[in-house]
Write a protein that binds this DNA or RNA. Structure first.
Lengths: 226, 226
DNA sequence: GTATGTGAAGAGGTTCACAGCA
DNA sequence: TGCTGTGAACCTCTTCACATAC
């Protein structure tokens, strides 16, 4: 089945697998079967086997998967090998959280620059980085940065995105709750926190709720996405 | 087509529609056709019509949709009517960002309590709320809170989730990058920022990348999810 | 003429069952 | 025997085309 296009939903699950594999690896496990990994992660065994089958035969029948080989292969497919330099724009509360968060390193991400528009912040040091003036965003082109994180208010987001794109960034993680236009060659993923929260009440029909929601709906399988 | 189960993917899009409708409403528009709304939001017109058709006939052929009626109906389906009280646990950088963020109100969310484990924070005021001791989480039962937000480190997240559940919370938005077990009656949505970022490089195959990714893959339709 | 709502066709993803290998 | 990899069946969601309503 080699060389088939990897479904988007599989790509979405690969980081989940990676996280699980790394935890098992840290526990000293060097081999694992799909069932055990599935239970550990909280998905189905056949889902894992199918997903992994899209990019070659990694497991040994009767044995399982070699953890290190599996990790390497998933990193390769996700294009995480070699690491990525990331630039952060907006060092408010959310941006500070991103800067302080230690969880990016395990995926090979390295935040190499931080920008803000607030004169009181520019020049100050935060988490080993000196905050730079956002108007200098284009200076980035010299560095090897291909990802950007937008953590600015909605009004400024489009402008920042444009700046990131012209600075050569190819992928953007956007926290601003607005729609942003970027060239097709640039991939943008938006996390609109309020919008995610807005989805939650649907699944918990309460006494207040007189709509026609079936309680059973919440049990719908959704590929372990949430 | 009335009374058919609303697809999960439709539920995922409804907050997007709601955001767009509210923007148009603020601009003074009181009627809109599916094509115009689609262009405004960045999806397809037939997708909107199909989605809306799952819960009754809202539009007038030859005319379009009444904005206010549409907004009311979507709020009703999402169970946003009447509002929801939310409790925040963890007032670090991320939690502070959540507290300071003004975007929840438009969906009817009201953060009514904030907890932390840090003695230096407990008792302090932040955004009109006095930060409470996380060990008092159970005291919540008296209030009418049905949603919780977890913004604590991964190690503490499961314990906090258990606390929220026993406090009567029915839905949880979790930012901790760990798998959390909750009873089936409780809906949990996890936003693992690093995991979302980890998905980005796949879509931007670079010179570094010698894998078999097709550049074209990035163009795949995904229902406007990202 | 214009725009909706929907049956039907088409994609895409999930689940199953089992052949094949260790 | 145990576990993988995968065709096939199944299911869900998307896209289309058009009858219907204003």
């Amino acid at each position: 089945m080699r060389y088939r296009k990897i479904p988007d939903e599989t790509v979405r699950r690969l980081p989940v697998y990676l996280r699980g594999i790394r935890l098992l690896s840290a526990q000293g496990q060097d081999s694992i079967c799909s069932k055990a990994l599935a239970d550990f992660i909280g998905v189905n065994a056949w889902q894992i086997r199918k997903d992994l089958s899209y990019f070659g035969e990694l497991g040994k029948p009767g044995v399982g998967y070699a953890v290190s080989k599996l990790e390497r292969q998933i990193r390769k497919v996700l294009n995480l090998e070699g690491g990525h330099n990331v630039v952060l724009v907006g060092v408010g509360n959310l941006g500070s959280a991103v800067l302080a968060f230690g969880g990016f390193a395990q995926y090979g991400f390295n935040i190499v620059a931080a920008f803000d528009s607030d004169p009181r912040k520019i020049g100050k040091k935060k988490c080993h980085l000196i905050i730079e003036d956002v108007t200098k965003l284009s200076r980035l082109k010299t560095k090897d940065v291909d990802l950007g994180i937008i953590a600015v208010p909605g009004e400024a987001a489009q402008e920042i995105a444009d700046g990131l794109v012209s600075a050569g960034v190819r992928g953007i993680l956007n926290f601003a709750p607005v729609r942003i236009n970027v060239p097709k060659k640039v991939k943008i993923i938006t996390i609109d926190i309020a919008m995610v929260l807005a989805r939650l009440p649907y699944y918990i029909p309460s006494a207040k709720n007189n709509s026609s929601n079936d309680v059973g709906i919440a049990a719908t399988a959704n590929g372990g996405r949430d």
